[in-house]
Design a protein around this nucleic acid. Structure first.
Length: 423
RNA sequence: GGCUGGUUGCCCGAGUGGCCAAAGGGAGCAGACUGUAAAUCUGCCGGCUCAGCCUACGUAGGUUCGAACCCUACACCAGCCA
């Protein structure tokens, strides 16, 4: 990375939604390594692409010569930050504890723990669990004014909704504010980054540090990523795109990026890619000139799949995609190629040839037989890449590829395999 | 503890005794057009042994020939009062 101003860099990439005094922040970066933190609450067994934006932003700031603290919210995960619409359901302590481990391990992957700017992982349960109610109310609570707590957007929205807000969630900002103060005291941490929906919680910390320590700290909010059509980023037909390969296979992960719409490519490249500004601008130009080549999508899919899942997994995803989406006849693929391609796709094993409607269900392409029949009726079902319109169609043994596989597809890009096992 | 309002399909939300598997919107799915893109248009969108049947409108019971709709109890959510 060049020595250009990291703030300029982040701004160019569209990664700054809000910040406290930007000039002061620039100066802090210029004056030497800044210790900064970003927190991740264990609300699920894995982080997802939305979280990856935050992680990669940390990585960028570290690469610019600063010291990251990766915080896992062992404590805040037990409380839950206020969602705009409704109160959260509390997860039990064992569950959160297990998720802390997994989430922490995911964050670690992207930070560098060696060298002069070595990262460090922390868990806010370490200092929050030993905080007594009295300590919390006397030492921290006094610095929080209820009026400004209620003015925070996340809280205000809930106060104005008929869902209301519990004291538990209302207090979330106190805990997060205290985290920042604690990290300031322990490690001299003076910057917190996070999603723009966290702005109120970020500033809770800077305010607390100012009041408790008389020092100013910085907050930087990364915009919530939305697609060009205004919908949420990071979702597919099957739901959230997770970082954990058990929850979202590398193949599905690769496919997600490959399917990025043209309108989003430029934006996503800037947010996710570690290529240089020059390289990205070149990709943007190429994509604009020849969108059908999907150069930008391929670049994103390659870089991100490799970063998150490794080069081997990337190669496998590409090979499988090529085989399954290729122009050629599936029957022309040799058994080994077909077998490894189908390994990337949901599979069911059967002992005899059942009607296609049943197979669609067995393989998970359709939620029910009714849905499967509907798909067939609508002409959305394919056997070995050939459309099947008959609701009651049953595959013949001649349809079996290499004597054992059937490739089923629903719509354009939902593939699955059926393997016939001689009984 | 009291009072009031609420609990409808993935989400929002209409529906106040039969014409209700339940309006409308959103999300989603498929087809056409394309580039495994977007937009657009068309169709679909509880389940099944699919022109019929079953299950569903917080839970349990009741009234009725018939209930998402009426009654009772309970649970949960919210608001107001104490």
């Amino acid at each position: 990375m060049t020595v250009t101003d990291i703030v300029d860099e982040l701004r160019w990439r569209g990664l700054i939604a809000l910040s406290t005094d930007e000039d002061a922040l620039r100066k802090a970066f210029a004056d030497g390594p800044v210790t900064f933190y970003c927190g991740f609450d264990p609300t699920a067994p894995s982080l997802h692409l939305g979280n990856l934006v935050q992680i990669l932003t940390m990585r960028r700031i570290q690469q610019a010569g600063n010291l990251p603290l990766g915080l896992v919210g062992g404590a805040t995960g037990l409380i839950g930050d206020p969602k705009p619409t409704a109160e959260r359901v509390l997860n039990d302590r064992e569950t959160v504890g297990a998720w802390v481990e997994r989430v922490g391990a995911q964050v670690e992957r992207y930070l560098d723990f060696e060298g002069p700017y070595a990262a460090r992982m922390v868990n806010n349960l370490d200092w929050t669990s030993e905080l007594s109610a009295i300590d919390l109310l006397r030492d921290i609570g006094k610095y929080f004014r209820v009026n400004s707590m209620m003015a925070k957007e996340a809280v205000a929205r809930r106060l104005n909704s008929d869902a209301g807000i519990s004291y538990t969630e209302f207090s979330y900002q106190v805990l997060q504010g205290n985290d920042f103060l604690e990290l300031y005291r322990r490690y001299g941490c003076t910057l917190q980054t996070g999603g723009s929906d966290q702005w109120g919680n970020l500033t809770a910390g800077t305010d607390l540090i100012r009041k408790a320590e008389g020092k100013s700290a910085h907050a930087l909010a990364v915009p919530l990523l939305v697609k060009a059509d205004g919908t949420k980023f990071g979702k597919t037909e099957t739901g959230t795109v997770w970082l954990d390969p058990e929850l979202t296979t590398p193949y599905a992960f690769y496919q997600f990026w490959l399917n990025t719409s043209d309108a989003d490519v430029s934006n996503f490249l800037r947010v996710f890619s570690f290529r240089s500004k020059q390289e990205i601008e070149e990709l943007e130009r190429d994509s604009a000139e020849r969108p059908a080549g999907r150069i930008g999508q391929r670049a994103l899919a390659e870089e991100l799949t490799t970063l998150v899942h490794g080069a081997d997994q990337y190669e496998r995803a590409v090979a499988a995609s090529k085989a399954l989406f290729g122009q050629g006849d599936l029957g022309d693929l040799d058994a080994a190629t077909l077998a490894s391609a189908l390994a990337e796709v949901p599979t069911a094993t059967v002992t005899e040839l059942a009607p296609i409607a049943d197979l669609l269900v067995a393989v998970g392409l359709s939620a029910s037989r009714s849905a499967a029949r509907r798909t067939l009726k609508e002409g959305g079902a394919y056997l070995n890449n050939a459309k099947v319109a008959d609701e009651d169609a049953v595959p013949a043994s001649a349809d079996l590829l290499h004597g054992r596989w059937l490739v089923l597809r629903r719509g354009k890009r939902n593939l699955a395999a059926v393997e016939l096992q001689a009984s």
